[in-house]
Nucleic acid binder design. Sequence first.
DNA 1: CTCTTGACTTAGCATATAGTAA
DNA 2: TTACTATATGCTAAGTCAAGAG
Length: 782
Amino acid sequence: MTNVLSDEDIPLSQRKATVTSKISETAKKRKSVTVKNERSISDSDDQIPLKKKRATETAVVATKAQPSSKKIKTEEKLSKSPASTKASPAKANGKSKKVNNVSAKQATEPESDIDEKPLAKRKVKKTDSKADGDDTSTQEKEEEEFYKWWESESNDGSVKWNSLVHNGVLFPPPYEPLPAHVKLKYKGVPVVLPPEAEEVAGFFGAMLETDHAKNEVFQSNFFNDFKAVLKNCGGPHLNVEKFEHCDFTDIFNYYEEKRVQKKAMSTAEKKRVKEEKDKLEENYKVCYLDGRKELVGNFRIEPPGLFRGRGSHPKTGKLKERVMPEQVTINIGFNTPIPQPPDGHDWAEVKHDNTVSWLATWKENINGAQKYVFLAANSSLKGMSDYKKFEKARELKNHITRIRKDYTKELKDELMANRQRATAMYLIDVLALRAGGEKGEDEADTVGCCSLRYEHVSFKPPNTVVFDFLGKDSIRFYQEVKIDPQVYKNLKLFKKAPKKIGDQLFDRLDPPTLNRHLQNYMPGLTAKVFRTYNASKTMQDQLAKIENKGTVNEKYVAYNAANRTVAILCNHQRTVSKAHEQSVGKIEDKILEIKLQRYRLKMTIAQLDPKLKKSDPEYFQPDPELDDTAMDRLIDQIIQREKDKVAKKFQKENEKRAAEKEEALSESELRTRMKVVEELEAEYKKERKTGKAEIKNGMTVEKLQAQIEKLNERIVNTTLQLKDKEDNSTVALTTSKINYIDPRLTVMFSKKYNVPIEKLFSKTLREKFKWAIESADENWTF
DNA sequence: CTCTTGACTTAGCATATAGTAA
DNA sequence: TTACTATATGCTAAGTCAAGAG
């Protein structure tokens, strides 16, 4: 078991990695772009006073031991009647207990065992009505001030609530059968399907034109499940055996038409539909947690459909079945009215577990995974855990120096397990890799650090490693990295024969082992904390480089550039939109057109003052990309556009006249209007032929030069816009903004640089990060 | 201990809505 | 005002990690 290595003596290299990363395609087409990503991991300083640290620790212990007796008291009546807003007892209680419990780590267990855990089971025994009655009779105030949990005592989080009131979940509407004339055809013959089967055929038909429906695995998984449903519900009047013989186009057309209709609805109709939807949802979207109104995140039970796995997922296309109330477990406060299941149905179970935050759960049939209904991102519960996540990452800065020193040393450890661990830590720290847990046969083949395999790394001497693998969501990770020479050696070693394709690089390491080791440095430290830490640290460093001057817009652009650095570090990508290529082409054309106009102005100057051209012939040359073909094409384009415009305007005017019962404009009117465009065309053509521009009255060299200056500006701006678009086309900024960058950094930036927070955080983000907005100032540091 | 399950965060894509240029 | 694009939000899949089961 103890694999001994020969000791290789390599001087401690500088702790800096230069990374050339090629953000690029997943299995699908992604545009590949080369990015230079330079990041120095030079250390941060260990300087948080020990005292402070200890204080937080005791606080955590203390609240854990908080007695739960009060819970019984805070029970409430169902949501619609405004819940009681009595302040949660947590604060006062936690505080008084704290004193007694400073040394209470031990005491926690037995006490809380009796006191907290069994609460759920106790509910039956409870003789609660009294406490309950008391509670509701106390006059309830409507809507208390927003609860600033971040200003109250910290709370250890093992008890998530003392009272929880909600209305359960919203089920998707039942299936609406297709009209009689819309049918699946089998070998050209319409098939009469029972509704259960028709629904499944409809799922496929509706997505006929998507990439999914063209994927063979998807087709075959779908078809197997479809046949099973057919068999189950008695089967159609003729045998449906082969996918190839199925024709879904009628179904597709039907749904397509419905979509078009929906889109074409008038604003008033749309409004009405939305109101109906809101009405349906209003009961479900809020709940009361410890008496405070909070939003529920996903109160809707996921509708049935075909499973859309990411990447090449073996189960993609399988039928995701309709979830029935009998499969749904509700979690709700003790003595709280239980939401009514739909008529004629029952819940699978009703729990009262206040150590979890979910309101409902069910098991999904594709992977057997649990699905949950949680509170929304702006809820106190989510906010608190978000806050804790960032505080944990901040705490890491007190340990990072030592951790880095240790793993650098252990890169040469004689024990294989240690050497692998150190190498993995390096990759997680420097390249921001995920932990990489084991995955099954029936999942997409994706990896993280610990699950990297032989085929995922290759070498370019002297010390460049090429990483190429599919990570979470089958997003490709491709980087050529100049790496610490010892890490280079180690990876080579981990690949050594007899290892071959398919074998794990880190065969003596897995995430639990790694995380256990990390806990030694800091309680709660796990692999993912490094991503948060490095993302936020990088953001802070990038923001620090921004000069506090210029317009708000310029600062905003600089902020986004910092954000982008982080997104690249975390390899957050997005597929280039279908329209991207096209819209880039449009902008490129726009630039060319401006250049053409600039060239024409220059020609005019040459006409007005030929001496100028003699003295600087270079200036009067057309831009290199403006060759003859390009110019002709652009001119055609401009003329065509003008013609379309005239025609459209003419048509509009006539429609208006028709509506007002006026006489339509004559065809000759249209011709007269077109003539103007034709004259313009003739002018362009003549210019092209003679190479001379027409001089219009009032033109002077100065005026023309001023116009050229304007055009120059527009060219610069548009080019920048294009570059920005290209740079951003494959990088997703939002993921890091939502999950990795401590929001207090953004708040700091907003205040210090006078950029309105609205510009940096969308409405939802402002709500989610309310705690940060209200607690950080311009001097806040991560 | 290893394997599985439960609970929660993180992720990109699809669609709705807002914003903006024509 | 309209038409298009950019951004925001909704959705749910796919990770991580701790705790429970065997």
